[in-house]
Amino acid sequence: MPVILAIESSCDETSASVCADGAILSNVIANQTIHEAYGGVVPELASRVHQQNIVPAVQQALAKAKVSKNDIDAVAFTRGPGLLGSLLVGVSFAKAFALAKQIPLIEINHMQAHILAHFIAEKKPSFPFLCLTVSGGHTQIVLVKDYFDMEIVGQTLDDAAGEAMDKTSKILGLPYPGGPLIDKYARQGNPDAYQFPEPQIPGYDFSFSGLKTSILYFIRDNVAKNPDFIEQNLPDICASVEKRIATILLNKLQKAAKAYGIKDVALAGGVSANTGLRLALQEMAEKNGWNSFIPKMEYCTDNAAMIAIAGYHKYLKGEFVGQDVAPMARMAF
């Protein structure tokens, strides 16, 4: 029964988790509020706060799991992709811990881990399945053939869906992080109040740069006519933007599912926490006779539990790395 300590530090969440024989015993996430004053993540500040948070996070994870450092059989860590300074903190800690305890190191691809978060719960998709992976930096449709046999069949050509939401929140004058606020106000609005364009990109790829521009011009033109336009219509604007982003994502997923003959479809990544997107996928799944899979909220955003479950499956295959491993800001599947 392997006991694995997992570390996640790809952006601004410091997270530690303990997994025993494929079961998550703890999942501690330390958020960073320092970035709110800057309207976005400041990489240098993120890495400094990771240094402050990582030891307490690991101590809490071990305590909640009721295991000691001596019980750990391997250390799994996010190697990339992500912010290099943030990754460096997690990778350095993992290497030092493994070296001190003379146990194996397991490198994990952050985006693969988001997909493998579906194997934490009892209800698991069957191979092959399609996963729509959506975050602030990535938007992908991935054909998942096995735990580590994955093929990106569609991806964004420019901006990510999460970035489009963040940009919209800034245009609307909402504080950082804006994604949860878009979600909150959208629940109170009419998603059909305003119509935004859907990019006509061939295949299964995405583009969100044009949508961001259309939202910017829409707000600019309406505020010029009515300075109180945003304040008076905030819920409807958020609901309409959220619906358009969801339809762009799901129309491509539906196209890919039909082409590949896939019935198991999944949603992953930070934006998979968005209520509108979750509900829209479930509705589309019912119409198409799909089996839909969406992780619990705590496993949608960056967390070490998904690193732990990915590490567990690599441990079973004996896939370890040496002390010469280094973080990678860009890391392909």
Rank of each mutant, 00 (worst) to 15 (best):
L87V: 00
Q51R: 04
I120W: 12
T156W: 00
A186L: 07
G179F: 01
G173V: 07
S17P: 01
Y185R: 07
I294C: 04
L25N: 08
N222W: 03
A266Y: 05
I120N: 09
K263M: 10
L277Y: 03
C131R: 04
K123V: 05
F148E: 02
G137F: 02
G276Y: 10
A76I: 09
I141P: 04
Y315S: 02
A304D: 06
F97C: 02
I215F: 05
F119N: 12
K95W: 11
P128C: 06
I152P: 00
L234Y: 14
S207C: 08
G261T: 14
L253G: 13
S10D: 03
K145E: 15
E242W: 13
A310C: 08
L99E: 08
E163G: 12
I215K: 01
V28W: 11
P128R: 01
D205R: 02
T133K: 13
G173F: 06
N291G: 05
A113P: 02
D228E: 09
S207N: 08
Q51K: 08
I24W: 09
A256G: 03
G162S: 09
V49H: 03
E8G: 08
F129E: 03
N109I: 11
Y299N: 12
R187F: 07
E283P: 00
S240I: 10
G90L: 10
D21Q: 15
Q188N: 04
C131G: 09
A246C: 15
V28S: 07
L172V: 08
A121F: 13
A37G: 00
I106R: 08
V325H: 04
Y217A: 01
Q59R: 12
I34T: 05
D324P: 03
K170D: 02
P56T: 11
L62F: 00
L174M: 13
I29Q: 07
A63E: 13
I230F: 04
K296W: 01
Q51C: 11
S135R: 11
C300E: 01
L277N: 07
R220K: 15
G178Q: 01
H118G: 06
Y315E: 09
K287T: 12
D205S: 12
C11Q: 03
N291M: 06
A46F: 10
N190K: 04
Y260F: 15
A117N: 07
V67W: 01
